[in-house]
């Protein structure tokens, strides 16, 4: 099991946002997390992404308890084992498109040649080679998100987390990004957890989980 949550709980103040949460994601799984806004999807995603720690229960990634390891180890994990895609893209305007994709590998200390080659490979896959040397603010929203996908996949992560990836895109761009996500995660063999409130987005995921009152309710497997 790649990612396993057991009895996971998180509260802010006296309010329990997540409570007694059990979850299992296997390698290569594609899971959609659905739920109304404010239900704690983002909180759960943050916990899965190693950005926060639960107050109760455990959350293990590849056997490592994310609640117990050091902050340094967490950062390392974020760098090498996870990839994240955000609603607002969050590309670095100071770097070119290609450099943005190379960034995770550079931060992991991989040699320049390897990073460049991997970036080229991914940009090819997302169809943005012609724009490799452009500055990210020049890109359209859809293009930016595709770069984000490439960036997230660069370190060959075991798990890809996507937080409302199409929230800022129009329908057409959104669909193409979703298709890209589906294809590439399959190709790379990465698991995908997709947080969204859009049914269309969830459609690329065979598994659907609904988050309600801090608990998971498994949806029907199609």
């Amino acid at each position: 099991m790649l990612l396993e949550a057991k009895g996971l709980g998180k509260r802010y103040g006296t309010r329990w946002v997540l409570k007694d949460l059990d979850l299992q994601v296997a390698a290569g799984d594609r899971v959609a997390l659905l739920g109304p806004s404010g239900c704690g999807k983002s909180t759960l995603l943050n916990l899965m992404g190693g950005l926060d720690r639960g107050d109760e229960g455990s959350l293990t990634l590849d056997g490592e308890d994310l609640g117990a390891v050091s902050a340094k180890r967490l950062a390392r994990i974020r760098r090498e084992r996870l990839g994240t895609i955000f609603q607002f893209f969050h590309l670095l305007p100071a770097l070119t498109v290609r450099e943005n994709v190379e960034l995770p590998l550079r931060m992991a200390g991989r040699p320049a040649r390897e990073a460049r080659a991997r970036a080229a490979e991914l940009l090819e896959a997302v169809g943005l080679i012609p724009r490799a040397e452009a500055w990210t603010p020049e890109l359209s929203g859809g293009e930016m998100q595709r770069v984000a996908v490439a960036r997230a996949l660069a370190p060959r992560p075991a798990l890809l987390l996507a937080d409302e990836p199409t929230g800022n895109l129009d329908r057409e761009n959104g669909e193409s990004v979703l298709a890209l996500l589906a294809r590439l995660t399959e190709l790379e063999g990465a698991a995908l957890v997709l947080v969204t409130h859009s049914e269309a987005a969830a459609s690329i995921c065979p598994r659907r989980l609904h988050l309600l009152d801090g608990r998971i309710q498994e949806g029907a497997r199609p």
């Binding site: 992404g49 950005l51 340094k72 950062a75 390392r76 994990i77 974020r78 760098r79 994240t84 969050h90 590309l91 670095l92 305007p93 100071a94 960034l103 995770p104 931060m107």
Partner: peptide, 11 residues
């Protein structure tokens, strides 16, 4: 940008 880098694991 700084926050993104933090998210990506920069100390």
């Amino acid at each position: 940008s700084w926050a993104t880098l933090r998210a990506m694991g920069l100390a």
